[in-house]
Design a protein around this nucleic acid. Structure first.
Lengths: 209, 209
DNA sequence: AGAAACATTGCGGGGTCCGCAAAATCCGGT
DNA sequence: ACCGGATTTTGCGGACCCCGCAATGTTTCT
């Protein structure tokens, strides 16, 4: 019978990704429940049904497993930027890409468990010092992709010109600030509003208010 | 005989700081020589003449010890910003503060061993993946101080207004990009030129070139 | 089906980091 | 100048993490 996988790359690759994501989510979930210090690699592996040794084949540390969720989210923003029509002005495209990806808890009516989990996860990464580094590192990784997208869009060169990385760095910082404020202060203001405001100020040259 | 310390806080505190700095430099030096994987905590402690256990009283990891140099440098920029006259416009003050602190290898004539060591240290932190996180984390820590300085100067509030953190984040990113380009590409261009250019672009709203 | 490629697992070791309690050192008052 | 409390340093022991290696499955290709 014909192989009816219908998916790219073969079944093997697919399963790997599933395991990877499952491990990552398990790490987040357990850490939210018990705190980072009370979660051993053994527990995470058990939750997914693999050996502890296998966990370390996927992630080189507990922290990396947790930050992997964040990394993927951040990456998707770069992808979204690439998906924006080339005719759009850069800052407008950035804004639209961000808004598309920061649409959280908007759809449906709060029944979106994964978003909830993710928000709790971000809170965690901000709170636990041991995770802050990992989250920042993940942001930096995504920043590189974002810079590449900006370079492509503006016809500049990532290696010879500072411009793309400058934009990527500033935008990443803006996202971070917006998210942090959103989590800390009143949740009444939507994250999207804050992100838009931050980006707008950036593109205006951050004049003193 | 009279205690002729002439320094603040007592002799004890002083010695602690010295040990701390000595450990940090030793960590940098050894890692440059042998690579991170070939340096154990034991070696660093031995170099300074303390027990391995003591090392961990000062730093909670090897990486932190190395990044401590970077952290101190970054902090000094925030301090420099505070030292700028309040009458100066914000962006001018930021630029001047940065230039004052990025004056490297300029003075004297290359006889400045500590600057050389530091440059090599930064190269290291950029190259070794295990150290990237630490360096970024240190940058983030300094960023908070920078934000406080900006808040003070602009009369904004760090907790309620995004502005100070936005500026701090963007500026930190700009420093990072400038340093990275300086290290990677031709060392002919001075770091100060690159920093100024990056800041100027930022304050102009990062228009596509 | 058979072989090659790849993933998972167990084992073992080097190393890090921390808590704890004893020894060494410093500081301030008399 | 000395003593008592406070602080630091140190050694020890333990829990855990992370990786290399080699054996053992499992998928993919021909």
């Amino acid at each position: 019978m014909g192989t009816e996988d219908g998916e790219r790359g073969g079944l093997r690759e697919r399963k790997k990704q599933e395991t990877r994501i499952a491990l990552s989510w398990a790490a987040v979930r357990l850490t939210i429940e018990r705190g980072l210090e009370n979660v051993r690699v053994e527990d995470i592996a058990a939750e997914v049904g693999v050996s502890p040794r296998t966990f370390n084949n996927y992630f080189s540390s507990k922290g990396e497993a947790i930050a992997a969720r964040h990394l993927e989210r951040a990456r998707s923003i770069a992808a979204e930027l690439r998906a924006q029509p080339a005719s759009k002005p850069l800052w407008e495209a950035i804004n639209d890409a961000a808004l598309a990806r920061f649409a959280l808890g908007q759809e449906g009516d709060g029944r979106n468990t994964h978003d909830q989990q993710w928000i709790a996860g971000v809170r965690l990464m901000i709170a636990e010092p041991a995770l802050q580094g990992e989250m920042i590192k993940a942001s930096a990784a995504a920043e590189a992709e974002f810079a590449a997208a900006v370079a492509e869009r503006t016809g500049t060169d990532v290696t010879s010109d500072m411009y793309p990385k400058l934009v990527a760095g500033a935008v990443t910082a803006a996202f971070g600030v917006a998210v942090e404020h959103w989590l800390r202060a009143d949740p009444s203001v939507s994250i999207m509003t804050l992100v838009s405001e931050a980006l707008h100020r950036l593109s205006a040259g951050l004049p003193a208010p």
